[in-house]
Simulated scan of single mutants.
Amino acid sequence: MSEKSVEQLRAEIAASRERLAGTIDELTTRAAPKALMQRQGEAAKQRFAAATTTPQGDLRTERLAAVAAAVAVLLVVRCMLRRRGH
């Protein structure tokens, strides 16, 4: 078994430091609030698209109508509660 020279060990340590620095930079970038918000926004868009369109890209009108009806009911209830409060 051959022993490594001091210069080889130094080179290996320097290479390890470079890899570690790159990994830390990547993790820092991924964990940045702006990056997290962007990924969450993209995921929300994908979930919305999946819920409102078929795999062929056609609108799922029954789901959109159900959401619109739910929002309308909530708005009516909110208006009724405000009127009672005044």
Rank of each mutant, 00 (worst) to 15 (best):
T23D: 11
G85P: 00
A66T: 05
P55T: 05
T53A: 04
L74P: 00
A72F: 01
E3H: 06
P33T: 04
A14E: 09
L64C: 07
D58Q: 10
L27Q: 10
S2L: 09
P33N: 04
T23H: 10
Q40D: 13
A14C: 00
A65W: 01
F48A: 14
A68C: 05
A31C: 06
R84P: 00
K45P: 00
Q8T: 10
A69F: 04
L20W: 02
L59E: 10
L59V: 09
R10W: 02
Q46L: 15
R47S: 11
L74I: 05
R84Q: 12
A65G: 02
M80F: 11
R39C: 03
S5V: 01
T52D: 04
E62P: 01
P55A: 04
S5N: 02
E42L: 14
K45C: 07
R84T: 08
A68S: 13
D58L: 09
A66M: 07
V77R: 12
A65N: 14
K34T: 14
S2N: 10
R82W: 09
R60V: 11
E12I: 08
R39M: 11
P33I: 02
P55Q: 05
R10F: 05
V6G: 02
A69V: 04
A69C: 02
A35Y: 06
A70D: 12
A65C: 05
R17C: 05
E7W: 01
T61K: 13
V77M: 11
